[in-house]
Amino acid sequence: MTLTRTNRKNTRSYMKRRIRHGSLMLLPTMIFVVAFVVIPLIYVGIISFCKWNGSRTVKMKFVGLQNYMRLGNVVGFRDMLIFTFVFAIAVTVLTVLVSLVMALALDIPSYGRYVNRSFLRACWYIPALIGGVAVGVVWRIMYNYNNGVINSILDMMGLAKVNWLETYGVTGIAVIIAQVWVQVGMCIIIFLAGLQSIPLELYESATIDGASKLQQRLKITIPLLAPSITINFVTTSIAAFKAYELPYTISKGLPGYSTHLVTQMIYHYSFEALDYGTGAALSILLVILIAAIQLIQLIILRRREDIY
């Protein structure tokens, strides 16, 4: 740097001033977040060590780790944990896969149909625009064994009707399909943006070097999309773990506890059984679970990113 003014500005006091101003700018965000996210979380943590029925006039009774110890005895706990993991993993993998394939397909310029593609992009995002309350209801009606749309179509094609909402295993698939349907749109948009940032020269030089289209895809596109893949994995998995309304409306956790999610269990204990201690313990468990998974995921994905 040759400008003396710039050099003069690189003094310690200037840096200190920058940090001070920066802190001021960061402060409102931190205030909001601490007040409305962190403090409720601490509150939940405190409740998880107490027994409380939610009434304003009833004091919370401190019971130590009892709520956590009894979690294992909660009916359906094992099924619920298994399905929460299966659901989150399946939804994340399927969403990212489908949206990646679709983004690659939608991005191929050789068709020259650019207008169609904007329209298609909008189409793929529509599922995310519809309010959660109605989406669950629509899917539940569609999965109806006797009059549902899906079984009607299967019937028309000559296949056997499937009992979507009452069969162990199949109901899980039904719920996963619905969740993927909702989350695919946002992933595609992020992938499309990522794709557009890859310079075309890379493809051209690869073609000159004699690489086939498929090789180009594998060796150039996907590695350079690594940051987008990371973002999509992280946001989709977090959303899948926190999903509550959609799976509940479709299957209510039936049959048995095979499609029960941790969030549904939290809802049941907090709002229906008025047992806030157990509900809070489950919330804390969920937070730890998601945090652990995200940590693992970030480590793996960041390493891949750095390689490329």
């Binding site: 539940r140 109806n144 064994y145 009992n163 909402l165 009452e166 209510k252 039936l254 049959p255």
Partner: peptide, 11 residues
């Protein structure tokens, strides 16, 4: 009837 467990009263 199959499908009953998912029925609301309206269904």
């Amino acid at each position: 009837m199959p499908g009953t467990t998912a029925y609301t009263e309206d269904d």
